[in-house]
């Protein structure tokens, strides 16, 4: 029971936090906390098989699925907590609290009697016991479950499938289109610039610099730009670099030492710069 009294407040807190955190990733993390705690409670309640399944299936598979979808949906899914339906939040709170109070008060009226426990049932091992029941009494439900899973898989495939409406473009067609786009709107013919090129960092969040020192916007992912995770301090870096180059010959530091120096300064400043006022100012939810 100690485990219960330790875990219960954590679970309730984590669950409540799901209601208030802004980012879906955080909500997923909090849900994982609740689920793992639940798994422990299953262990307390003499259900070791469900403990394992809870960890593997729920926390391992289902939560992964959530995270994958979050990744696909991306930053656009970032949730605003401003309520749009009038009265929805208050009514939801009132209704939810009323339900919760009713359930708790209702349960308080019931005395369940002494706990029988699963000691005798689990004598030959919990998994064997479950298998005995599952493959005898519940075998039909078990088989139907397989049909359900296949149907779900088929459904997911159908939903995710996109019918190709036009024939696949050949490389020749693509090339012709790109040249045509270049002729019409002057679109860049070649591949997009890679991030970090001509820059002091090769992280994906560091935009490439054009020969004149300006930022090549195309070189970083739009999602990163929308999330505000792009390094925006390039011009200042360039100035600093210029100064370092200017000072370099003056201080008599050999060129071979310049490189570790510069890296050390940049690593020293990069965190400061990334948390500085210039970053994170881009609006979220570009859509």
């Amino acid at each position: 029971m100690i485990a219960f009294w330790v875990l219960a407040p954590i679970m309730v807190l984590a669950a409540l936090s799901i209601l208030f955190v802004r980012k879906a990733v955080h909500a997923a993390m909090l849900l994982a906390v609740v689920m793992i705690s639940l798994a422990v409670l299953y262990l307390v309640l003499e259900a070791p098989f469900l403990f394992a399944v809870q960890i593997i299936v729920y926390t391992g598979a289902i939560m992964m699925l959530f995270l994958f979808v979050l990744m696909l949906v991306g930053v656009d899914a970032s949730d605003s907590v401003i309520e749009t339906i009038r009265g929805q939040r208050i009514l939801a709170m009132v209704g939810g609290l009323a339900l919760g109070l009713t359930l708790v008060l209702g349960l308080a009226q019931i005395s369940l009697g002494s706990v029988v426990g699963l000691g005798s049932v689990n004598e030959g091992g919990n998994i064997q016991a479950i298998a005995n029941v599952l493959f005898s009494k519940y075998v039909f439900a078990f088989e139907v479950t397989s049909a359900l899973l296949i149907t779900a898989a088929m459904g997911a495939m159908v939903l995710a499938h996109r019918e190709r409406l036009t024939p696949r473009k050949t490389q020749a067609v693509r090339a012709a289109e790109r040249v045509a786009a270049y002729a019409e709107s002057g679109e860049h013919l070649g591949p997009l610039p890679a991030p970090g090129v001509y820059a002091r960092h090769n992280a994906v969040g560091t935009p490439a610099l054009l020969p004149d020192g300006s930022v090549a916007e195309d070189s970083v992912s739009r999602v990163l730009a929308a999330r505000g995770s792009v390094r925006r301090t390039i011009p200042r870096d360039v100035d600093e670099l210029q100064r370092a180059i200017d000072h370099g010959p003056g201080s008599g530091v050999p060129a071979s030492q310049d490189s570790p120096d510069g890296r050390s300064t940049s690593t020293g400043r990069a965190p400061g710069a990334s948390t500085g006022p210039d970053t994170g100012s881009t609006p979220e939810g570009g859509e």
């Binding site: 929805q88 939801a92 209704g95 939810g96 339900l99 009713t102 209702g106 009226q109």
Partner: peptide
């Protein structure tokens, strides 16, 4: 019928509340 699925969910919650209350009223 405002088109918001959350509004509909709210009415479902109200229904659940009523059913629970009815069950409690009958059992207690």
């Amino acid at each position: 019928q405002n088109g918001y699925v959350r509004s509909y969910a709210l009415s479902v919650l109200g229904g659940v509340l009523l059913v629970v209350l009815a069950l409690l009223a009958v059992n207690l």
